[in-house]
Each structure stands twice: as C-alpha cells, then as structure tokens.
Design a protein around this nucleic acid. Sequence first.
DNA 1: TTCATAATGTTAAATGCGTAACATTATGTT
DNA 2: AACATAATGTTACGCATTTAACATTATGAA
Lengths: 237, 237
Amino acid sequence: MSRTGLREDRLERIGAMLAGQSHLKLAAIAADLGVSEMTIRRDVTESGGRFACLGGHVIGAHNDVAGDYVLEKEHDQHAAAKLAACAKAARLIEEDDTIFIDCGTTTPRLAALLPAEMRLTAICYSLNVAEILSRRQNTRLILLGGLFHPAAASFSGEPALEQLRRLSINKAFISAGGVHETRGVTCSHFHEVPVKQAAIERAVDSYLVVDASKFGKVRAAHFAETGAFASIVSDQD
Amino acid sequence: MSRTGLREDRLERIGAMLAGQSHLKLAAIAADLGVSEMTIRRDVTESGGRFACLGGHVIGAHNDVAGDYVLEKEHDQHAAAKLAACAKAARLIEEDDTIFIDCGTTTPRLAALLPAEMRLTAICYSLNVAEILSRRQNTRLILLGGLFHPAAASFSGEPALEQLRRLSINKAFISAGGVHETRGVTCSHFHEVPVKQAAIERAVDSYLVVDASKFGKVRAAHFAETGAFASIVSDQD
DNA sequence: TTCATAATGTTAAATGCGTAACATTATGTT
DNA sequence: AACATAATGTTACGCATTTAACATTATGAA
C-alpha cells in the first residue's frame, strides 16, 4: 500500500506543469521532479487516464466532457455525418456576422470549421465551443457563463440569460437530440431549453444543425417546433 | 503557390475532428480524409504550430492564451516560483469551501493543484482556469462569462459582475502583476479590476498569490492595497 | 499538347520510444 | 536489526515512428 501518496503528489504537479501547455517532454518533467523518466511513465500509466504518454511527451488526456461516455460513443459513430452537417452550416456564415453556437457534440465541429480569417462575433455557452472560438484571431467571443453542467459542458444561469436577451444575433446554429414531425425539436438537458429559446428569439435566422440520425427521435426536453427554423441543416437533404 | 488551399481545408477538418478529442491516430485521420499519412504529417508541420505529431498521433497544440507570447515566456521563467506559491495556497483550502480563483498565468496551477477528491464550489472568470476545474469530479463550477479578452483568457461584463456580487465566497485567491509597499497591488488589464474588487469584497478571506518576482513592481491598473488580504502567499516568505 | 511546378504517394533506413526484466534503494514492521 | 514489501533506477532490445529521398500524379501556363 502506498501510504505516502508520492505518486499522487507527482501527478498533481504534472497536472500543474501541464496547465496551459499542450504537451511536455517526458525528460523535462522527470528533471523537474527529480525522478527518472521511467517513474514518470509509471505515474502516467497509473493515473487512470488523466494523462497519456505519446512520443516521449506527456499530454493531458483532456476528455471532452468528463463522464459522458455514452455521448462520447455516439459522437464517434455519427462523426462523419456531423462533420458534413457542420460543413454545410459553416457555408451560411458571412463576414461580420454575429452568430450563436449551441452546445453539444455537433457544434464544436462547426466552431472548428469557421473560415480561419473571417471577422465574426460569436456567442456560445459551452466550454468546448468557447475553447475553440477563443483561438481565433478575428473573432469577438461572448461566453454566457453560470453554473457548469458536466454532461453537456455547458453553463446555465439567469444573469447569462438576461445578457443573451439583450444581444442581437444574425444567425443562430442550434443543435438537438431529436427532431420529430409532430413532437417538435427536443434535447436531453432541461437547463438548455431557456437558452436555446432565447437564442432563437433573438436571432434573425435560426438553423437547426443535426445529423440525419436525429430525425424521428424524441428527447425529454422540448424547446421548439421545426417551423421556428429558417432551415434544417443536415448531412442528408 | 497553393492556389487551391487544399491543405488549409484539411487542417480545418483535422481541427474539427479533434474538437473534443485530445489526440487522434494519424492513420485514422489519413483514412478519414482519404490521403496518406505522410500528407497529414506534412500538413501538421505546415500548420504553423496549430497541431503537433507525437507518437503517431495528432494533438491540438492548444496554446494556453492565443497571442500573448510575452506572458508565455515570463510564465516559463518563474514557473517553479509560481508552482511553489500555488502549492502553499492550495493548502489553505478545506472541504466544502467556496473559492474564487483569479485569472492569469499563476492561477491555473493553483486550480490544477487542488486536491483531486475535495468537494468544492469554485468561481472563476478565465477560460484556462475553468477548463482545469471542469475536469474535477466533486466540484461545482461557476464561470463568470461575458466578453472574452485573449490577452488574459478572461471574461468581462456587467451581468457577470452582478452575479458575482450575489455570491458568497470563503476564500478568494487573487493574482497580481505588481505588489508595491506604497503603490498597492496592480495588474495589467483594466477590465479585471472590478472583478477582482468584487471578489475581494464578497470573500471572507482574500489571499494574494504571487511569486516573489512581483514584489516592488507596479502595473497600470490598481485594484487593492496590500492590507486587503488576509495574507500574501508567495514562494518566498 | 507540352512543359514546369506543386502536391501527394511510396519506400527504406535510422533514430528514438516503449516495454520488460532485473538491480537498487527506501520504507515500515516484527 | 533483520526482514518483507514497496518504490524507484538502470539497462537492453524490439519495433513503431520519423525523416529523407525519390517516384508519381495532379495542376496550371505557355
């Protein structure tokens, strides 16, 4: 039994060193902590997935959304479809637009597909989308903050809603877990409902960005009818 | 001259595929884009640091704060001192505390050094701190949103300030660019001033977390006197 | 069409990573 | 103190990654 917890201490220090950096040389960490590279290797393998060793470097394993492994799997399955839908959505965006990007597993791809040099104002309320947008040069980013929900990596709260209601949006890109002819458009997380609704209300045009697997599905939280959208952007028709 | 920009297209698609994942197999990307691994390798080297190849995988280079290379360098210089200061600060935190963590290059390390299993409520207003905190299991995270400032990776805005003024904080961990006996405590970014001040006001105890290199320095934006803090937590005395 | 140039594919060799096996040192117990 | 066990260090070898060099295919211009 490791009474001392030295390994855990080192892992925390590795985490601290990694804060900011994307990857660090195995040798550098070993030198910094005054142990051998082999020990760092062993630490990383025992870290339970917090870190990973790749090509002599350590990287933070940085799993998108902590916990939600179900979503993560679904993610991979329809990855190509989502990418296709996002590519279409990205073509709708013009220079100097003010866009709203919803949360979920589809929308980060849209954020990543925005033309690199295009001047934009982007509004979002999820951590993974914000992170992608924050790296852009010519984009003004507004993140609606509040209480963090790990399942969707999104935030919720009245102050943020108030702020959203005072913003004007050209194009809102909304995602959904289900699109049904009679039951309308639904998602899984109730706290997202008021945000999505406010975004749709404030936007000149709203677009529903979903892969075709969502058609016919129904989720718990209803937030709009299909008629609320200027168009449904999907990999198929 | 690459008139077509195929490479750039692929880089965007790689970015989109990487959205969420920390790393992706080189072979998987090559298969998805229908090109050879060698081409992906060349893309990555020509990406100007956006991506990196490590151990047969591609990772997002994920540079902490886009742009601020000056800070990034200073960062590295006093890295050990900052880590030491943060380690001391981390020891002040107890189970079930509500803590405020400031923005900057020091505080991400504090966030990373928080005991892994400790139950906490954490308030922050910078993207890099939020990202680290969001991976914790037993922590309720509140991010103060608003307009993004790339230089400090932080957010500002009246709605977030209002929200902060309604929160109660046990311990606020504040960073600074300068600590001076007569000129007080200062930082470089004016938009941070009202946030820091509100946090100090709402906190039972505020702690100034700085490495010793900050002593005697003065920056443009004044936000507090040294007397406002329960103690100054630094690598030296 | 023909040519020049860019883009991509293929192959092959060497560097360096990753793993295992064993040696050594620390730690705690009786 | 002597022992058992955990923790770390060292070495060496197989193999995947990486790089370079060259072959091939696309692209655009004259």
